[in-house]
Amino acid sequence: MTLHWAHVAASYALAALGLGALALGAWLRHRAARRRLAALDPRAAARDGAA
């Protein structure tokens, strides 16, 4: 049985890269929206836990 570590490593790396990019994107978007909202409407933002 030959080893195919390159294929295994590539699979896990792709999964980490794909999901990691999505997570980073979601986090940045979330943070930017939270800050903008807190600047626009501090009272509502605090009430909704978005601040």
Binding site: R29, H30, A33, R34, R36, L37, L40, D41, A44
Partner: peptide, 8 residues
């Protein structure tokens, strides 16, 4: 994020 963006 989308809900907040819509409110913004």
């Amino acid at each position: 994020a989308a809900v907040m963006e819509r409110r913004i």
